[in-house]
């Protein structure tokens, strides 16, 4: 039986007791490029962070390739939002990409020659190998995003979770990234991408997850990208849901 790369059941997340995601049930099939779309504050980033245990969940469960995330963490690659780190940090491009290997190296192991080769290959794939020794503060936004992508490639994972990889990048970088994602998909990898631009979402992704504090719809792009469902996703929060969320918060 084929393994399911990602399955969530009734996944619920609350920040400071304020629910931001209610009961998300998804089952993502293998080898798909999946876009996660929805308005600001819909909980898109929260969803992928909750999958990886970066933010605590208040209910439900997550299975990655049939097991808990902790057991299969090495099979998951991650591209965080570019703004989530300090780009003046004293490391160079190669240092950052090598971090993608830390999960496999373990707590005490050393960075091997093979690790360095994999990191260099990953950099090459995003066209950043000439910048390997560059200090990260000297990179443009697009270059920073490519470095983060190379780091995820160096993780050599089967499931990739990417948080807004197209934000603040130039057109050529965007094209290069989408080509790379399609290549990964063709090699049987599963990729979830948080995306904020609706027109491109329709062309980029095989499947779409429409999110607004709850899962509105999940399915093949041509089935889900409909006026009615998009209206449901973007047409304002479900007011009752927001009100209840506030009541819960006040009660605490």
């Amino acid at each position: 039986m084929q393994e399911v790369p990602l399955e969530t059941h009734d996944l619920t997340v609350a920040y400071d007791k304020r629910p931001v995601l209610y009961g998300v049930d998804v089952q993502v099939p293998e080898g798909k490029l999946v876009g996660i779309v929805g308005p600001n504050g819909a909980g898109k980033s929260t969803l992928i962070k909750a999958i990886m245990g970066i933010v605590p969940t208040t209910g439900g469960w997550v299975k990655v390739f049939g097991q808990s995330f902790a057991k299969n963490a090495s099979r998951v690659g991650y591209v965080p939002q570019r703004e989530s780190v300090d780009w003046d940090f004293p490391v160079n491009v190669m240092d950052v990409v090598l971090m993608g290997r830390y999960g496999r190296i373990g707590l005490m192991g050393r960075v091997s020659k093979a690790d360095k080769e994999i990191a260099a290959e990953s950099l090459d794939k995003v066209g950043m190998l000439p910048y390997a020794k560059r200090q990260i503060s000297n990179l443009s936004g697009g270059q920073q995003q490519r470095v983060f992508l190379a780091r995820a490639l160096a993780q050599e994972s089967d499931l990739y979770l990417m948080d807004e990889p197209f934000v603040g990048v130039d057109a050529s970088t965007e094209a290069a990234i989408i080509e790379l994602l399609r290549e990964l998909k063709n090699r049987g990898k599963t990729i979830l991408v948080v995306h904020h631009d609706l027109p491109t979402a329709q062309t980029y992704f095989d499947m779409l997850m429409l999110l607004n504090m709850r899962l509105v719809a999940f399915g093949p792009t041509e089935e889900v990208f409909t006026q009615e469902l998009l209206q449901k996703t973007y047409g304002g929060r479900l007011t009752i849901l927001s009100e209840v969320a506030n009541k819960v918060r006040e009660a605490k």
Binding site: K49, M52, G53, I54, F69, A70, A73, S74, V76, Y78, P80, S84, V85, D86, F89, V91, V96, M99, Y102, G103, L107, R151, Q155, L161
Partner: peptide, 11 residues
């Protein structure tokens, strides 16, 4: 540098 990424790798 990136504590979220470290957690995402199960470290």
């Amino acid at each position: 540098f990136d504590i979220g990424f470290a957690k995402a790798m199960g470290l």
